[in-house]
């Protein structure tokens, strides 16, 4: 490897990483947070079977899941100005990513809500709780636990999807890399480099997912539990 190339790679590392930290991460965090809010609301509307709103929710999911993310970005960023609606690149990216991810996560949440046994809702009614109280205290906590792994999946996808924001002039990691490539003519090394930085980000998230899952898991609760330990030791004793 030539010294020149090595110099470029080392040099550009911070030049790529900084937009990563300053743009890619905030873009992901903001979009995913809004997406979660949309997802929970849309999933609950469907779960509670609220008439008109349910139709609207299904329509929203149908449209968003059925069209490419890139097309959505273009329609909002390059198309809407035709109607006099102009949104800055970064907020526009947040808007589109939230709406897009919200539709997918809504389906994840709906499945998770439906996996909580209905009997627990009836039990909630019978002890005098209201529907919203039951949702908040009983159903949602269980659904979030179930939805945690697939939602982590969505979050990891989203980190990588933010590279599409380069198309609407958001200077995030990928756009920053493209600019360096245009100057240096080293596409192979630099695109691999940015790929590795995405990999680094996703590795951290995967680690966090494992931590989160362990914290949420039922088995962890059991391991802490003295009675469970007692049973385990008993069964060992019996085997001997």
């Amino acid at each position: 490897m030539s010294d020149r190339l090595l110099g470029i790679i080392v040099d550009s590392f911070t030049k790529i990483l900084i937009p990563g930290i300053k743009v890619t991460i905030p873009l992901t965090v903001l979009s995913f947070s809004f997406a979660m809010v949309i997802a929970v609301i849309v999933a609950m509307i469907q779960f509670a079977n609220i008439k008109v709103l349910k139709q609207i929710s299904r329509f929203y999911i149908w449209v968003v899941r059925g069209t490419p993310l890139l097309v959505q970005l273009y329609v909002i960023f390059y198309g809407l100005p035709n109607m006099g609606i102009i949104i800055d690149p970064f907020p526009c990216a947040v808007l589109v990513f939230s709406i897009n991810e919200g539709a997918y996560c809504a389906e994840t949440m709906r499945a998770a809500l439906e996996s909580v046994p209905k009997g627990q809702i009836e039990a909630g009614y019978c002890v005098g709780m209201s529907y919203l109280q039951i949702m908040r205290r009983i159903v949602l906590p269980q659904a979030l636990r179930i939805a945690f792994p697939p939602l982590s999946n969505s979050l990891i996808s989203m980190v990588k999807d933010t590279s599409l924001a380069a198309n609407i002039t958001v200077v995030e990691m990928f756009m920053a890399t493209q600019r360096i490539v245009a100057r240096t003519y080293e596409p192979l090394a630099l695109y691999i480099e940015v790929g590795l930085i995405y990999l680094l980000f996703c590795t951290v998230l995967t680690g966090l997912q494992h931590l989160g899952e362990r914290k949420l898991s039922v088995t962890a609760e059991r391991r802490k539990d003295p009675w469970y330990r007692h049973v385990i030791s008993q069964s060992r004793f019996r085997r001997r």
Partner: peptide
């Protein structure tokens, strides 16, 4: 009133 279910229906969380 109160209700006791066949499948207990305890809140799992």
């Amino acid at each position: 009133t109160a209700f006791v279910f066949q499948n207990y229906n305890l809140f799992s969380n």
